[in-house]
Design a protein around this nucleic acid. Structure first.
Length: 470
RNA sequence: GACCCCAUCGUCUAGUCAGGUCAGGACGUCACCCUUUCAAGGUGAAAACACGGGUUCGAAUCCCGUUGGGGUCACCA
């Protein structure tokens, strides 16, 4: 049997971080078993299902590299099919029409709740003669669910979960306006799409029982279920807006590389021994449902950040430079010149180990691209007092005549100057740093010197010294 | 409230299914080393089997209970 999994989000305006993990697990499982990973957009609620909301889902998935097989299925295209299945059920006696008013239903729920019963609908129209139907009331179609016995879901993650059928009521399949409910649509679509494994959040676990009943009523094969624990916020409750960013695009905008997000998400609730850092290709070789935990995991931005820093360090300079150039240009307010681009690229190796996110990296690279004269920040300005300028002049004298403008030679020259003047290396290096970068924090100052080049370096030093001539 | 699920360092987790090394790793925290700043890197430290009963020579691991946390209870998805 070929494995077919699916991700079936409803459009909410963004790809939820938890949804992204669900999608990832589905894809990983399909890849592991050489199967297919399909995408279905559950857009039957017109209020939510704007084009922008649908696009946000696709964009989020693509950004993470979660490519699906085939064209996405839009549930809204399949309404007639859903209604037809309801009609089949009606014809076969597996479903019936119910004419209860909203008020009656509310009263039933109230009564059920007082009784402590799980069955919210009391079955009023289950066996009632349709001839007694009130005039002018459009009925809903309900499933004729079993009254006794129990329903079992053999879940690949949760294990065997059993519920008494008296906890399940006759759910609505078709609304009064003839549109299908979620419960019906999901089952029909999953069946028609030949889904073999339904991997989704465990907030759907109770739905699995109701859906099982529909599969049975239609005589369809029941797919394997795997209900993965939800991602919780730091306070232990289901991740929601009050916990901060929910959409993956927010993490993209904060500058987290997609590799880091995937790696982090893969490790939330799933593990392969002590492996922490791995590619999704590697994960696809390892992934199995039996290694998914049953307890919910809390979202930890600190760990995501450390993964982000790791992947940035590992990235090759070329692609990285291309990635952050637009960010730097944005901060600068102008496109980069060839010189700026070259410096950016050359400076990356020293910048990379200092960045947590791509946004950090772009910001830290800014000083390489800023035009003279630099405006030093407060701490840097303090380093450039008269005493600092004197030491800066000392440093300038040591390197100005260098034939070979490389980090190694600059370092040798400055060290020698420090020694002969009785200064510590740091007291020469810090004013130099302030002059060259406008900051007290930067990559190794000799490397900065080399990346900036002779003319720019000397120019920046002279700006700080207050000289006009280079 | 009813039904269902869950429980190892602050967090993610290995170990649980087939009971038996000082309960391992990672993130975070702290210390030290490296060092021209800040990072990165290296070394080390503190840090957990929720509780109570069983079963057993032996329990993080199996069973029961308690407590705690979570999810679901629509003509939303």
């Amino acid at each position: 049997m070929t494995v077919v999994t699916r991700f079936a989000p409803s459009p909410t305006g963004f790809l939820h971080i938890g949804g992204a993990r669900t999608a990832l697990f589905n894809q990983l499982y399909a890849q592991r078993y050489g199967g297919q990973f399909l995408l279905r957009i559950e857009d039957t609620d017109p209020a939510r299902s704007t084009d922008a909301a649908k696009r946000a889902i696709l964009d989020g998935l693509r950004w993470l590299g979660l490519e699906w097989d085939g064209a996405p299925v839009y549930q809204s295209d399949r309404l007639e099919r859903h209604a037809a299945v309801a009609q089949e059920l009606l014809d076969a006696g597996g479903a019936y029409r119910c004419y209860c008013s909203p008020d009656e239903l509310a009263a039933m729920r109230e009564a059920a709740r007082r009784r402590g019963s799980g069955r919210l609908y009391d079955g009023t129209w289950r066996d009632r003669n349709p001839a007694e139907a009130p005039e002018g009331v459009a009925p809903v179609v309900r499933l004729r669910a079993p009254l006794d016995g129990e329903t079992v879901v053999d879940d690949a993650v949760q294990g065997r979960v059993t519920v008494r059928n008296d906890q399940l009521d006759d759910m609505v399949l078709l609304r009064a306006d003839g549109t299908p409910t979620y419960m019906l649509s999901v089952v029909v679509d999953d069946h028609d799409m030949d889904i073999t494994h339904i991997v989704r959040g465990d907030d759907h676990l109770t739905n699995a029982f109701r859906q099982t009943l529909i599969y049975r009523a239609m005589g369809w094969d029941i797919p394997a279920f795997a209900h993965i624990p939800l991602i919780h916020g730091p306070d232990g409750a289901k991740l929601s807006k009050r916990h901060g960013a929910l959409g993956v695009e927010a993490y993209r905008d904060m500058g987290f590389p997609p590799e880091a997000v995937c790696n982090y998400l893969a490790r939330l609730g799933w593990s392969h021994g002590d492996d922490e850092i791995f590619s999704m290709a590697q994960a696809a070789d390892w992934f199995d449902l039996k290694d998914v935990g049953r307890s919910p995991a809390r979202f930890d931005p600190a760990k995501l950040t450390s993964l982000s820093a790791h992947y940035i360090r590992e990235m090759a300079d070329g692609p990285l430079a291309d990635m952050i150039e637009p960010l730097v240009a944005g901060l600068l307010g102008a496109p980069l010149s060839q010189t700026q681009r070259t410096r950016l690229r050359a400076g990356l190796s020293g910048l990379k180990p200092r960045a947590k996110t791509l946004a950090d990296l772009a910001e830290s690279a800014l000083f390489y691209c800023r035009p003279r004269p630099l405006a030093p920040d407060a701490k840097a300005a303090k380093l450039l007092d008269d005493a600092g300028k004197a030491r800066l002049a000392l440093g300038r004298a040591a390197i100005a005549g260098l034939d070979d403008w490389s980090a190694g030679h600059a370092e040798a020259a400055i060290r020698a100057a420090a020694e002969s003047s009785g200064e510590k290396l740091g007291s020469l290096a810090q004013p130099l740093r302030a002059a060259l970068t406008g900051s007290t924090v930067s990559p190794g100052i000799f490397e900065v010197l080399e990346v900036l080049g002779r003319a720019e370096s000397l120019g920046r030093i002279d700006d700080s010294l207050g000289r006009t001539a280079g």
